[in-house]
Write a protein that binds this DNA or RNA. Structure first.
Lengths: 332, 332
DNA sequence: GGCACGACGGGATACGGTTTCCGTCGGTGA
DNA sequence: TCACCGACGGAAACCGTATCCCGTCGTGCC
């Protein structure tokens, strides 16, 4: 048999091969435990890989999406590899560039540090270059809507508004929002969502205070400890930018002997797996990670759409009420 | 400039190039935004990738190791990609085979489902084939010592023994071990470690009971709920095979109104990030994940050792005592 | 029965690098 | 001054696969 024939039957081309020869090739391949060289294959027609670039694999939001992507990818003969970059723009750009060299079918980027406001365009340049060479690019995350790629956006503002409204409706009036830092793309969106919701359901803008903190358990802990030292006076609720921060808030309250939700309510965002196992259970907002992961693969696999701009899909969260928030006043 | 010259300066060979020419090449490369094609490069000399195959990226033990690997890999001009296989032998074998096609520098495998006892050799065959073609293979995990590859083993038995001894020394006599399922490589090792430790510090073998359960929060919850229904009578401590199960145990105790540690102590294994934030904080065993990740990369990068068998390194855990275990009797 | 067409096999080539081999050039010591 | 040596540049081969193109063979139609 010739190389060409073998390539046709193994590589799955459109050209037809005589059934007998095909059988012979397959048999020989299994006999020699032969596998196609993915590297060489990728050189001509691109590989079946879908590469995901994230900030940190340990964050639940990423892990959940990755799991869904893996599962979905199996159904379309693709496979997923993941790289993390700690959110550093330089590493992101380098990683995208390196991965692009392997000619994957698609590149999926998710980062909390990228938005239309961030002036760093290195990553975006790399992504554009990859797309120009025929690759598909999908971005997922809060700031992704403004980017010139297929985007899976989370409507953080809308989702946070749910929380704000719920809090105000259950009688919370004086809120402190632990808003994280500016570099997180979702920070501003969630914060304004919280505020909007609180106002819409009866709170007064003067009773809302916004405090920045590092986005980590320690950041939440430190900020809360500081607030407690300064005196929380009438504060009804500590609204954290995400669950990780909220966990720090809860720890600080516990350390200070502050009853939650008796003395103050606490809320998070993301619904990490362990949120229900905290004491009290954390009131939070759940995001449809599985759906997002599945959709990411679907977008990655389908060819580039003919006309029009990039695809844009928005996902919304849902409120999960647990024990960390009380009812201060009957809902009106 | 010739292609060869450019390759030498960009590819970083051992051949020397005139400094002036090197500068010219680099300058031209940046000017044209040129990047080497990783796929083509991998065809001849292998790529700089280090591929990690794990069961599930969301498990803290994996996430922590990956993070350390990523960081370490930067220091040696390698980069890490991760794939997950849900622990299914078929997927593992297919994934290893696919990844091997990209000719990575090394393949790191970690799985709770592989040990010398598991009769499934498909993955091992693939790994052997990869090694025969010049690749490096590193396995990490409980059952890895018996495998014919460089191994980073965790001494689960020794580490669990720490816990058993601590429990017996603090007066716990009647223990129920929630031992997970047989297919987990670490299950047997941890269980016997627990038992050994308890016995060594004064417990009686008749007072130790071993119960199997699914290795998940729900598995721990269900098993504990069942035990509580049957009556815990004199049980001093519920010893879980890992933190995830322990979290389920705690939840079941809470649901049944059983005070921890007043009525019964609870322990875990792994020291997941949120273990300290549970109420009460979870007494558990911490593993040196960072160290393991760093070492994995070091092994992956170094050439195959000359003589002798594969490298074998063992890591041991340390006891972390928190509020979920009480002192029933002054340590004697 | 002859011809046109379709199906299929095989050689050649492209892909984008690395590596080997050889030739040249400059410097140095006898 | 010449022979020798080391350093470096350039041409060419090669890696494994997909694809183009052409030749051949079989088949169906007129």
């Amino acid at each position: 048999m010739s190389v060409a024939t073998a390539s046709r039957v193994l590589g799955g081309g459109n050209r037809s091969v005589a059934p007998e020869n095909a059988r012979k090739v397959v048999e020989a391949a299994t006999r020699l435990r032969y596998t196609m060289d993915a590297a060489a294959r990728a050189m001509n027609r691109g590989s079946d890989a879908i590469a995901l670039v994230a900030d940190d694999l340990a964050t639940p939001a990423v892990a959940a999406v990755v799991a869904a992507m893996e599962r979905q990818a199996r159904t379309v003969d693709a496979f997923v590899t993941v790289s993390s970059t700690r959110g550093l723009p330089e590493l992101q750009a380098a990683t995208v560039r390196t991965l692009a060299g392997f000619r994957p079918r698609a590149l999926v980027l998710t980062s909390t540090r990228i938005s239309h406001e961030s002036p760093d365009t290195r990553v975006l340049d790399e992504l554009r270059a990859f797309e120009r060479n025929g690759g598909r690019v999908i971005v997922y995350g809060s700031g992704s809507v403004q980017l010139p790629f297929d985007a899976l956006a989370v409507d953080d503002r809308w989702s946070a508004r749910l929380m704000g409204e719920h809090l105000a409706r259950t009688g919370h009036r004086r809120a402190i929002i632990l808003a994280g830092t500016r570099e997180r793309a979702y920070a501003a969106a969630r914060t304004s969502g919280y505020v909007e919701g609180l106002l819409a359901a009866g709170a007064d803008v003067q009773d809302i205070r916004i405090v920045n903190c590092e986005v980590s358990r320690q950041g939440g802990f430190d900020a809360t400890a500081q607030l407690i030292r300064e005196g929380l006076d009438g504060t009804d609720v500590l609204v954290a930018i995400n669950d990780t921060v909220a966990i720090g808030v809860l720890a600080a309250c516990r350390a200070a002997g502050l009853d939650v939700p008796g003395r103050v309510s606490v809320t998070g965002f993301d619904d990490v797996p362990l949120a229900r196992d905290l004491t009290p259970g954390l009131t939070t907002v759940a995001l449809p990670f599985t759906e997002i992961g599945v959709r990411a693969i679907e977008l990655a696999v389908r060819g580039r759409p003919e006309g029009g701009g990039p695809a844009r899909e928005t996902f919304r969260g849902s409120l999960i009420v647990r024990g960390s928030t009380g009812v201060l006043r009957a809902p009106g």
